[in-house]
C-alpha cells in the first residue's frame, strides 16, 4: 500500500506492507532509529511518538493507519541546534541512565505538559504510567518534567514556545527524502 506521512517536518511517500508497524516504518524505512521498540504488548512506551499532535505508542499503530498524518519523533524536537526544553530538562536533572526509554519518556512528557502545563508530582507520575524505565526509579524524571514545566510556563522565556512542535525548517530536511510538499505544523497534545 502507498502511504504519505509527514515525519519531523518532512513528507515521505512509500509503499508498505499493511502489516508494517509505524515504529518499524520509522526505524527501517526512514532511519528514525531514535524511536525504539522495548516490548510487544504496548506496555513500555519506549516507542512513543506524536501522531497528529497526540502521543501514541508507535508499536501499536500500523504504518497504513498513519497515512496522511503528521508524526513527530524524538529526532524532530530540537530546533536550530537547541534542544526542546523537555530534552534539556531531562539532561539537567539526570533523568536518564541507559537512555533507552528516554525518547518515549520525553515524547510522553511533552504530551502531558500540553494537557497540564503545571502538573504536581502525582500528575506527572500518572501521566507517565504508560512508560517504563528500569534505571532511574523515576524520581529524576518527575523532577525533570516539573522543571521543564516551570521553564515552559508563560513568560518563562523563549523556550516556552517550544511546547509546539517545530514548524518546517528547510535546513532540517534530509536531503534524500521525497519532499513533495511542506507538511503543516501542529501543536503537541492539542486536539
Amino acid at each position: 500500500m502507498r502511504i504519505t506521512v509527514g515525519v519531523d517536518g518532512t513528507r515521505y511517500t512509500d509503499d508498505v506492507e499493511p502489516r508494517m508497524l509505524l515504529v518499524h516504518y520509522l526505524r527501517e524505512r526512514l532511519g528514525k532509529t531514535g524511536t525504539v521498540v522495548g516490548c510487544d504488548t504496548s506496555n513500555c512506551g519506549a516507542c512513543t511518538v506524536h501522531l497528529d499532535g497526540h502521543s501514541v505508542k508507535s508499536c501499536s499503530v500500523l504504518a497504513v493507519q498513519a497515512d496522511g498524518s503528521e508524526v513527530t519523533t524524538i529526532e524532530g524536537l530540537a530546533r536550530d541546534g537547541r534542544m526542546h526544553p523537555v530534552q534539556q530538562a531531562f539532561r539537567d536533572n539526570h533523568a536518564l541512565q541507559c537512555g533507552f526509554c528516554t525518547p518515549g519518556m520525553i515524547m510522553q512528557a511533552i504530551d502531558l505538559l500540553a494537557d497540564d502545563p503545571d502538573p504536581d508530582d502525582n500528575a506527572v507520575r500518572h501521566g507517565l504510567e504508560g512508560n517504563l524505565c528500569r534505571c532511574t526509579g523515576y524520581q529524576n524524571i518527575v523532577r525533570a518534567v516539573r522543571d521543564a514545566a516551570s521553564k515552559m510556563a508563560p513568560g518563562a522565556g523563549p523556550a516556552a514556545e517550544q511546547v509546539a512542535e517545530p514548524t518546517l525548517d528547510p535546513a532540517s530536511r534530509s536531503s534524500d527524502a521525497d519532499i513533495s510538499a511542506p507538511a503543516p505544523s501542529h501543536t503537541g497534545g492539542g486536539s
Binding site: 531514535g34 524524538i74 534542544m83 530534552q87 539537567d92 520525553i106
Partner: peptide, 17 residues
C-alpha cells in the same frame, strides 16, 4: 551533567538493533 545525555535525549543513539 552527563556527556552521554546529549545524544540519548535527541535520539542520536547507536543501539545494536
Amino acid at each position: 551533567l552527563r556527556k552521554e545525555d546529549e545524544r540519548l535525549v535527541t535520539g542520536r543513539t547507536r543501539w545494536t538493533d
